[in-house]
Design a protein around this nucleic acid. Structure first.
Lengths: 190, 190
DNA sequence: GTAATTTCTTGAAGTAGTTCAAGTTTTTGA
DNA sequence: TCAAAAACTTGAACTACTTCAAGAAATTAC
């Protein structure tokens, strides 16, 4: 059974057998235990993570000491801090496993070398990044135009299973309201 | 004098003279008058715009009929709706010139063909999209962690000239507060 | 140059959310 | 299996912002 990342890549580009071999040889799956961090605030992020199985999140700790989740990643998503990655500057974010997860961690030096050997992969990463940016724009639209309750209901309609999968306080902060208010929304007390 | 987009591209990749010629022949600058739209809500976006000179914005009209700016673009920025562009679905956004602007408009069919002829350009668009996504993540962080006044001051410190360049009500909506509140922040009445 | 339009300002009243604190329930891991 | 830790709930008090309405100032375009 081949590396699951290859299925994802081949949704966007076609790979030659030799290219598949090269990727198989470079890309190993590793397990990140629940609550384990792969990036801490202040570190320079020089790794991209492809999530094979599980759930990761990017979060910050705000001035009141509360965690706020900026991004979740599940199966077939990439997660990293692209700004730290590209500019070699300390990250503003934590990246952590929400569930014990299988990921493919690719260091920048390795990826740069793979991209030179298989230039075709540039297209894959271009499309992944462009779609992610498009999704971020929609996320900002929802944050701007919907009330807290509307954001919760919209998210629940779009991702009914995911709502069960993560602690409510993480989802509340992702939707930009407090854990207490989430409780009241769910109880119909708003 | 060569097409200004070439300077931007060559910050990230090296182009051969023949590739420069090809790009010069495909890419023309057009002028978008102030307030003119290049994308309306509901249209399918099949063009990317590179801003040579001027200022564009992406915005929505919310349920109260008020415009809310999600993104500004200035010199050397790309602006488009990537989700509509990639998925061929109707856009949620308007894209409009804030100032009369010079842009290079590239249709998807043309760009796809250029990318086949100059695969190296994939890297350029990959990096542009990854950096844009990184910037969007930071934007969400600021929206989550700062008060309205902090967001205004932070933006003013980062982009002092830009604050003068656009109507305050547009900047207010970009920073996610009302035009009236912007007025009070600036007057020190908060 | 001036009318028309757009943008900015101000105060008063209202509200969608937060914060706090304490108790309850659920989940985790040895 | 059970103690400890993590997650969820509730109500009361509070606040950072919005909304509205009306007038003033600045900018645009013929």
């Amino acid at each position: 059974m081949q590396n699951p990342i290859l299925n994802h890549i081949q949704k966007f580009i076609n790979l030659e057998p030799s290219e598949i071999d090269l990727l198989e040889s470079c890309l190993a799956i590793s397990q990140i235990k629940r609550k384990e961090h792969v990036l801490q605030e202040g570190q320079i992020c020089n790794t991209m993570y492809f999530i094979v199985k599980g759930c990761m999140r990017q979060y910050i700790i705000n001035s009141k000491g509360t965690e706020q989740t900026l991004q979740f990643g599940v199966e077939n998503w990439w997660i990293t801090d692209y700004l730290s990655y590209h500019n070699h500057i300390p990250s503003h974010f934590y990246i952590q496993a929400v569930e014990t997860s299988d990921v493919i961690a690719i260091e920048k030096s390795v990826l740069d070398s793979i991209l030179i050997q298989i230039p075709k992969l540039e297209k894959y990463f271009r499309i992944v990044a462009q779609k992610a940016f498009g999704a971020a724009q929609m996320r900002i639209k929802f944050l701007f135009t919907m009330s807290a309750e509307e954001r919760y209901n919209h998210f629940k309609n779009q991702q009914p299973d995911f709502v069960q999968r993560v602690p409510q306080y993480m989802l509340a902060s992702y939707l930009d309201f407090s854990a207490e208010f989430m409780s009241k929304i769910r109880a119909g007390k708003v």
